[in-house]
Design a protein around this nucleic acid. Structure first.
Length: 866
RNA sequence: GCCGGGGUGGCGGAACUGGUAGACGCGCCGGACUCAAAAUCCGGUUCUGGAAACAGAGUGCGGGUUCGAUUCCCGCCCCCGGCACCA
């Protein structure tokens, strides 16, 4: 009797074997670059969630594929260990963030190990370790020295009750998350990194990132937002108001000026004008996030001040408008309501004049106010109107003529503007990397000397939600000024956690180096060959990492500019949501695991009840797995139930990696059934009687067909896993092949050898996804070596040759028949055979054939008159 | 609001370069095994009509290009991700 598939018995010994063999260690051989397969490291939130599980399975499949193809591979793992959730946990439970974080890491490391990932654990790192973050501090000081880091003020969310700075996430509908108090905007000094110095390079290098998804490159390009335009100065009472515009050609259509509420002119207007002051104050509440600002209703107020049009000399009113961002350009715009959507909306609301200065000249349509939307931002096939001497010029000529005129008058200059802003890295938080600065009354801001690094973060503090505990910790605060020796105080701000994650991949190769940030190994092993992580990181993290890598390159620490050769952005993991409303009408969410659902024949939900009380619950849609909807499925539970291979198999099979994945318990069941069947089928083959004779001898037609399918599958899986990363279709092909192979009954020694070849191929093809089962089956098939060393199956081209191919016959594009022909048949022959087909005849009989299209070995389309 | 992506059977998805829409899996229906159930195995399963052969319709909606469109173009609807202090 065959041993049934029992992952609880199979998986642990297999993992033990890999462990004993130290099978996942990346070899360090000078000059040799291992394939560097990197996953975005997890935030240690407490438990591994499905998103992690999916992410790391994808990289493990790629890692194991390359290992089986004979390449040394580095697949490391670490912890993005600083951040806000640790402080929230501390506030909620009174546990120091350090302890909470390290406990979580311990637990999650165990969970990762149970999944059998081929990770080189000897290189593990955590960003909260002083041995790691000391290099954040070291590089920050180098940047400060070179002027790449600098200090200026920035706007933050201020909770007036807790007297603390809030993250955007902590601002809900303009109110503090804990206090409910109306959030205020506040200006505070912060450190910034000059990422804008690299804007052009970061933009241009995107073209070379062939291994990145097009959409990520587009998003980054739009984020950097390079635009060619002009800086124009409008004279005002005692000076000038400078604006940036990409459309100087519309200058004659400017009817008012708009400045941000934080603009100096706005402040000036507020002096002695309580109404204006009140308006500015009202703009000072609510959060600072751009999404929030942009979604606000457009509001404004006339300052009573005017600016003189640099060409016409006309006086234009200056308005304060909440839709003008102080952080872009100069914080002021010339408003051309005729040709800008936002200006148009604003002008309409406040009754400001709207002048058309551009019109379409394509002669196709008449344009007027009724189809405003069609022409107001057009740049092609346009001419200037109502623009005096510039009438009749097209967009470019108008741009040039007006730019020249302004430059001549000294009222403007051509300039490139980026949307990208410098990266503010100061955070008024405890659980982060301390910024290594000392404040001295006499010497000012003094960098901590290199030999005093790292500035260690005290780990015993417990934040309470009101301000940083560092600012209250005398032991941390008090120090001596490195320059004059007088008593001084430490900077209490910590660094943005994006700093930690901007270079962690440079540290894995040299994690043991206590002397320097990176070394020869980093230079040898970079760039990362394949990076895998969530699409939500498409802009910020990836842009910061590209910037940081370039800074290190310019310091002579690295030879590469681009850190990530190829990028794969995985989709989210979704699950059903179920709820019931309580007395106050609030939704109470039930975990899908605790809901029993009854469906009709069409799959519609008939009845759903909570298992705990048998009372009905309502379907809330399919949503991203999240605590708030209580729809998370714990990978650990499933691994306990089905084993790691089944969970890995389902998550790779249910959807291609880039798409979102809908969790389904029934689908997991299906993956489990497939593995049981494969296990059974290989055992049946092993237990069958081996026919006598020469294994290299004659093969039946069935055997040749089976062999053709096996080699087609090898070709498809190799392409799907190695090039396309469509693991779902690779698995489907393996399932299809195993279904066929299990029906094949070898009757000769030659046939039996074909079956053996097939099963050995399938066990290896599925090995990157289900390594435990494959390792066990590989051993049963008589091999001593590790599945990682078993080699990837090779395609025998000779096995792929087919005697007949099916050609589809269409009449006027509709399929009317199929014919079998030898591959490579003549067009004429195929066409004639197609026209003789009985069903085809019915549709072409008595009609004149206008045209026949023949796609060799695939399709014939006969076009007949109607 | 701005930038990016997506929408295909009852469900997850496949169709890679414009060439058979629905591979593979789930679910469901029928059958075998069983005293019975579970598990397993076999068959069917886009919709409409038809016993079947076959015919008609069909890839969010409305148009277009083409011998041929899930795929390309134009307009719209809905959903999701990001928006600089969540990570």
């Amino acid at each position: 009797m065959t041993q049934p598939y029992d992952p609880a018995a199979i998986e642990p010994p297999v993992r033990q074997r890999w462990n004993d063999e130290d099978a996942f260690r990346a070899p360090d051989r000078p000059g040799e670059k291992p394939y560097y397969c990197l996953s975005m490291f997890p935030y240690p939130s407490g438990h591994l969630h499905m998103g992690h599980m999916r992410n790391y399975t994808i990289s493990d499949v790629i890692t194991r594929f390359h290992r089986m193809n004979g390449r040394p591979v580095l697949q490391p793992m670490g912890w993005d260990a600083f951040g806000l959730p640790a402080e929230n946990a501390a506030i909620a439970r009174g546990v120091p963030p350090a302890k909470w974080t390290r406990d979580n890491i311990r637990h999650m490391r165990g969970q990762l190990k149970e999944l059998g990932f081929a990770i080189d654990w000897s290189r593990e790192l955590a960003t909260c370790d002083p041995e790691y973050y000391r290099w954040n501090q070291w590089l920050f000081l180098k940047m400060l020295e070179k002027g790449i880091a600098y200090k200026k003020t920035g706007t933050v969310n201020w909770d007036p009750v807790d007297q603390t700075v809030l993250a955007n996430e902590q601002v809900i509908d303009g109110k503090g998350w804990r206090t409910g108090a109306e959030v205020e905007k506040r200006e505070i000094p912060m450190y910034y990194l000059r990422i804008t110095d690299y804007a052009d390079e970061l933009l241009e290098a995107l073209d070379g990132l062939d291994g990145w998804p097009e959409r990520v490159r587009t998003m980054q390009a739009n984020w950097i937002g390079k635009s060619e335009g002009m800086e124009i100065s409008f004279p005002v009472a005692d000076g000038e108001l400078t604006v940036f515009t990409t459309r100087p050609d519309t200058l004659m259509g400017a009817t008012y000026m708009a400045v941000a509420p934080e603009h100096p002119l706005a402040r000036k207007a507020a002096e002695g004008n309580p109404e204006v002051a009140e308006f500015i104050r009202s703009c000072g509440t609510g959060g600072v996030s751009e999404a929030e600002l942009a979604a606000q209703e457009k509001r404004g107020i006339d300052t009573g001040l005017t600016a003189r049009h640099p060409l016409t000399g006309e006086d234009l009113p200056i308005w304060i408008a909440n839709y003008v961002l102080m952080s872009y350009g100069s914080g002021a715009v010339m408003a051309v309501p005729g040709h800008d959507e936002r200006d148009f909306a604003f002008a309409n609301k406040y009754g400001l004049p709207i002048v058309q200065v551009v019109r379409l000249v394509d002669g196709q349509h008449e344009y007027d106010d009724s189809n405003w939307q069609d022409w107001y931002v057009a740049k092609e096939n346009v001419e200037l109107v109502n623009s005096g001497p510039y009438d009749g010029l097209d967009h470019q000529a108008g741009f040039d003529a007006i730019a020249d005129a302004l430059e001549e008058k000294g009222r403007g200059r051509r300039r490139t503007q980026f949307r990208l802003r410098d990266w503010g890295i100061s955070r008024q938080r405890y659980w982060g990397c301390p910024i290594p600065i000392i404040h001295c009354d006499d010497c000012g801001d003094v960098p901590v000397p290199e030999q005093d690094l790292p500035v260690r973060l005290p780990e015993h503090l417990v934040p309470d939600g009101s301000g940083s505990p560092l600012a209250k910790d005398e032991e941390f605060l008090s120090c001596e000024c490195p320059e004059c020796g007088a008593p001084a105080r430490r900077e209490t701000d910590t660094m943005d956690t994006f700093v930690d994650s901007s270079w962690y991949f440079l540290r894995y190769p040299c994690v043991d180096n206590e002397e320097s940030m990176v070394d020869r190994r980093t230079r040898d092993w970079m760039p990362v060959d394949q990076y895998i992580g969530g699409i939500e990181h498409a802009i910020l993290h990836l842009l910061y990492a590209r910037f940081w890598t370039r800074v290190m390159r310019d310091f002579g620490l690295l030879g590469t500019s681009e850190p990530f050769e190829r990028l794969l952005t995985q989709g989210m993991v979704l699950a059903e949501t179920w709820y019931r409303e309580d007395d106050q009408g609030r939704k109470v969410w039930f975990n899908p695991a605790g809901v029993d659902v009854e469906r009709d024949g069409k799959g519609n939900i008939v009845r759903a009840v909570a298992a705990e009380d048998g009372q009905p619950v309502h379907f809330g849609g399919i949503e991203k797995m999240a605590k708030s909807k209580n729809n998370g499925v714990d990978p650990a539970t499933l691994v306990g139930q089905y084993g790691a291979d089944t969970v890995r198999l389902f998550s790779m099979f249910a959807a291609p990696p880039e798409q979102s994945l809908e969790w389904s318990d029934a689908g997991v069941e299906g993956a489990w059934r497939f593995l049981k069947r494969l296990w059974q089928q290989v055992h049946e083959h092993l237990e069958a009687d081996v026919p006598d004779g020469d294994p290299g001898g004659e093969r039946s037609d069935e055997a040749l067909e089976a062999r053709r399918r096996v080699h087609e599958t090898i070709a498809k899986v190799t392409d799907d896993v190695g090039r396309r990363y469509t693991f779902n279709t690779a698995i489907a092909a393996i399932m299809e092949c195993s279904n066929h192979l299990s029906r094949f009954r070898p009757r000769s020694a030659g046939d039996f050898a074909v079956a053996r070849e097939g099963w050995e191929a399938l066990v290896r093809l599925i090995a990157p996804v289900t390594p435990h089962a494959s390792q066990a089956l590989w051993q049963k098939l008589g091999h001593e070596d590790s599945i990682l060393e078993a080699g990837w199956p090779a395609v025998d081209e000779a096995a792929l040759v087919q005697q007949q191919v099916t050609v589809v016959v269409q009449v006027n594009g509709k399929v009317r028949g199929r014919i079998e022909v030898p591959p490579g048949s003549d067009r004429e022959v195929v066409q004639q055979r197609a026209m003789q087909d009985e069903n085809v005849q019915r549709f072409i009989d008595g009609k004149s054939v206008r045209k026949v299209i023949v796609v060799p070995d695939k399709l014939v389309n006969i076009v007949v008159a109607a």
